[in-house]
Design a binder for these strands. Structure first.
Lengths: 143, 143
DNA sequence: GTCGCTGCAAATGATTTGCAGCCGA
DNA sequence: TCGGCTGCAAATCATTTGCAGCGAC
């Protein structure tokens, strides 16, 4: 993975720095879809001089290289995903966690939309909202 | 429509003011999914003392009354829709306009997702991205 | 007359930008 | 060496909040 990011950065004329690798690795190592601030807080202990600005600038570059995608789940801040495949996401309205939805085949749905609109469809984002298993259990336990 | 908004406001203990009616009417009269600033700019000539803060506060109330829904199409600002039915939206990546997608049946897709996740699904938002007919034509004309 | 509402101005908070010194190539 | 990069601080911008006077009821 690192080798891949390293060469991709170099190929596009970007310098390879410890911060950039750390930010990409932090994103690649989780499915929690962290926000910029969450990434910053996670790296702060390891890179005490790391700044939020660097996180934002790096994510901008990673987005250009198609190494991360940006999620807009309706919060005040964006979230980021190192899994750049076009998959739906679900957000827990109770605890705020954001998960991937695996194994959902949306090709039929997308092609149906494409054929029913005058737009040339180039991409899509599907966001679901609900209650995660953990919050369901906690809610049930309280009753 | 006005009668409906008026009584809904009153029923919930909110006062009925010209500003609130004007903001709701502005939203109900368009399918352009305006942002707060667009609504403000539209009403400014008619209500010269109207403030952006009032637009935001009113939209908050209209959301509580389920008279508008909030769209998060990946821009820096939110957009609002007086059509509160749960329908997909499409955004032109060229000119930025946001349109409704009518006649799309997503029930099968949603129920398939519901059955394949441990979440209790309570809602969803589908955003498509592409090029609108107008921009397609302009692009073709240039070639 | 009361109390919620408006609208101004100031505050907030996520993200961006400017810039001086640093460091990867 | 050298130009891009980091990280600090300041700027930006959408949205929210505080509050004094106003207006719906």
């Amino acid at each position: 993975m690192d080798i891949c990011v390293t060469s991709l950065l170099r190929d596009k004329g970007f310098k390879v720095t410890p911060q950039r690798l750390a930010i990409y690795n932090a994103l690649a190592a989780t499915t929690a879809h962290p926000s910029a601030e969450m990434i910053y807080n996670e790296l702060q202990p390891i890179y005490p001089t790391m700044s939020l600005a660097t996180v934002y600038k790096t994510i901008e570059i990673l987005k250009e290289l198609n190494l991360v995608q940006i999620l807009n789940v309706g919060e005040d801040s964006f979230r980021y995903d190192a899994n750049t495949s076009n998959h739906p996401h679900v957000r827990c309205m109770c605890c705020g966690r954001v998960d991937d939805l695996h194994g959902i085949d949306s090709i039929d749905f997308v092609s149906r939309v494409s054929s029913q609109t005058d737009y040339t469809i180039q991409g899509q984002q599907f966001y679901f909202y609900g209650i995660c298993p953990k919050c369901q259990n906690e809610s049930a336990a309280k009753q």
